[in-house]
């Protein structure tokens, strides 16, 4: 069984934003969501606790991976027609380039949402989308509410 996704719209955007409003970690990431070129765009708003190495002021790799995972979950939960719950199963992140102490933008591509499992890819960049700093393959266990 495959679950179809809703097209990105003001309604799916509102659903994603509502999920962030109830989440402490969503606030910790400084999560901002918008629609750009027909896709939902997730922004990690840079803040000092997101730093890994204070000497070179790069984002912490774990913070990057955690935000990719967070954005992937929001994308799935905001775009399925029926309300779902989701739990992370696995996140496999590749760190493609060094990061800097600025915002991270993320776009999510949902590959398949089955009855129990969703497969998602999330990609993050800082300024230049052609120069991604990280990408992640993510699997979620989904449950009907």
């Amino acid at each position: 069984m495959r679950r179809d996704l809703l097209d990105v719209s003001e309604e799916t955007l509102a659903r994603a934003r509502a999920l962030v409003e109830g989440s402490n970690i969503g606030a910790w990431f400084g999560t901002r969501i918008s629609i750009e070129n027909g896709e939902q765009r997730y922004r990690l708003t840079f803040d000092e606790p997101h730093i890994g190495n204070p000497v070179i002021r790069a984002l912490h790799g774990g913070v990057i991976s955690a935000f990719l995972q967070y954005a992937a979950t929001l994308e799935v939960l905001s775009r399925t027609p029926e309300p779902l719950r989701a739990r992370s199963i696995s996140v496999h992140t590749s760190y493609l380039r060094g990061s800097r102490d600025v915002d991270l933008d993320v776009a999510v591509s949902v590959q398949r949402v089955g009855r129990r499992i969703a497969f998602v890819e999330a990609r993050g960049w800082q300024g230049d989308r052609e120069r991604e700093v990280a990408s992640a393959q993510i699997a979620l266990r989904v449950f009907e509410e």
Binding site: S23, H60, G62, V63, S65, A66, F67, Q69, Y70, S88
Partner: peptide, 10 residues
């Protein structure tokens, strides 16, 4: 949030 485990484990 399980993202914290990723941060800690990294």
């Amino acid at each position: 949030h399980p993202g914290l485990m990723t941060i800690l484990l990294d």
